[in-house]
Amino acid sequence: MVTPALALLHTSPVHVPVFEELRDEDHPGVALRHLVHEELLARARAEGSDAVAGAVQELLQRAAADGASAVLCTCSTIGGVAESAAAAVGVPVLRVDRPMAAAAVAAGRSVAVVATVASTLGPTVALVEEEAARAGHPVDVTTVLVDGAWECFTAGDHEGYVDRIVAAVDALDGVDAVLLAQASMASAADRTTLRAPVLSSPRLGLRAAVDRCGAGVTS
């Protein structure tokens, strides 16, 4: 049995098949290990992302000890906490939304961050501003919290979830790029009619993480 090269830290099991499919399409042969911990998001929403910092670091260290050569955090709410723990973990730790944020900054000055969970907005805006400063491109960031979408998600109504996201995105005007802040929102990107690019994180984030792994392709 091949030791997994890339570990993925999720806060919902719905992400597992999404990243498995992307791996099969773009990175066949790369071994993935999925770590699903729903309680991290629940606690971060209730107490703030710093409240889960210790638990996240412990999970990341365990993943590295089990053989992962990199870890990708697929939850935008705790992505910053995970990324900041990299020095203590000893392997690269990436947040899934950073490549998406960089792409949005490159697209233009006006960036809209769309989320279905309020706790995701602050970390994602901060990330966009960080990438803008790194690129030397000032941005104007607006935020949209999609009303009623998260309730659909928790009830297992995926179509209702996506429909609400699409409606919110299509109502935007005068933006150069739209970020779908959570990995669970990705399927809405292909359904929107907005002329500006609508960016989602899973494919870009997985590509960046595989690049950092270096090893771990099965023979």
Score class of each variant (00 low, 15 high):
Ala181Leu: 14
Val16His: 00
Ala86Leu: 10
His27Gly: 05
Gly160Met: 15
Ala86Tyr: 06
Glu21Tyr: 00
Ser201Gly: 06
Leu22Ala: 04
Asp190Met: 09
Ala86Asp: 07
Ala189Cys: 06
Ala177Lys: 13
Val169Met: 15
Pro13Leu: 15
Glu58Gly: 08
Gly79Tyr: 13
His158Gln: 12
Ala168Leu: 09
Leu8Trp: 10
Val16Phe: 01
Ala86Val: 11
Leu172Gly: 05
Pro123Arg: 07
Asp26Tyr: 14
Leu194Met: 07
Glu20Arg: 15
Gly29Trp: 03
Val113Tyr: 02
Val125Thr: 00
Gly79Gln: 12
Gly108Thr: 12
Thr11Asp: 11
Gly90Leu: 10
Val16Gly: 03
Ala82Pro: 02
Leu35Ala: 09
Cys213Ser: 10
Leu32Ala: 02
Ser201Leu: 15
Ala115Gln: 03
Ala135Cys: 07
Ala53Asn: 03
Ala5Arg: 03
Thr218Pro: 01
Asp157Glu: 09
Val93Tyr: 05
Val114Met: 14
Leu121His: 02
Thr193Arg: 15
Ala53Thr: 03
Trp150Ala: 04
Ala65Tyr: 01
Thr218Glu: 10
Leu179Cys: 09
Val89Ile: 13
Ser49Pro: 11
Ala209Phe: 02
Ala70Ser: 00
Glu38Asp: 13
Val93Gly: 06
Arg195Asn: 11
Ala135Gly: 09
Ala181Phe: 03
Ala188Asn: 05
Thr142Asp: 07
Ala44Met: 03
Arg195Thr: 13
Ser76Gly: 02
Val71Leu: 09
Thr192Asn: 08
His10Met: 04
Pro197Tyr: 13
Gly48Arg: 02
Thr11Cys: 15
Ala5Cys: 14
Ala68Lys: 05
Asp24Lys: 02
Gly80Tyr: 11
Leu204Trp: 05
Ala177Cys: 07
Ala55Leu: 14
Thr77Phe: 12
Pro92Cys: 13
Thr77Ala: 10
Thr143Arg: 09
Glu58Ser: 11
Asp24Met: 00
Glu38Thr: 15
Leu204Asp: 04
Cys213Tyr: 08
Ala51Glu: 07
Val113Ile: 07
Met185Pro: 01
Ala186Ser: 14
Glu47Asp: 15
Gly216Glu: 06
Ala42Gln: 10
Thr192Leu: 11
Gly136Gln: 12
Val117Glu: 01
Thr154Pro: 04
Ala215Val: 08
Gly122Ala: 14
Ala135Lys: 05
Thr124Pro: 01
His15Gly: 01
Glu20Leu: 12
Ala46Leu: 11
Leu206Phe: 00
Thr143Gly: 04
Leu9Phe: 04
Pro28Phe: 15
Pro123Gln: 11
Val71Tyr: 08
Gly54Phe: 10
Ala149Asn: 02
Val198Ser: 05
Ala209Ile: 02
Gly160Ala: 14
Leu6Thr: 02
Asp140Tyr: 06
Thr142Met: 09
Ser184Pro: 00
Gln61Lys: 15
Pro123Met: 13
Val162Met: 14
His27Met: 07
Ala126Ser: 07
Thr124Tyr: 14
Trp150Tyr: 02
Leu59Lys: 06
Thr3Phe: 08
Glu159Phe: 12
Ser84Glu: 10
Ala42Gly: 05
Ala65Phe: 03
Ala85Asn: 08
Ala88Thr: 01
Glu20Phe: 08
Asp170Arg: 04
Met185Arg: 00
Cys75Met: 04
Gly67Asp: 00
His10Ser: 02
Arg195Ala: 15
Asp211Trp: 09
Asp140Ile: 09
Glu83Asn: 08
Leu40Ala: 09
Val14Gln: 11
Ser84Phe: 07
Cys213Pro: 00
Phe153Tyr: 10
Ser76His: 04
Glu151Tyr: 10
Ala82Asp: 00
His34Val: 00
Glu130His: 01
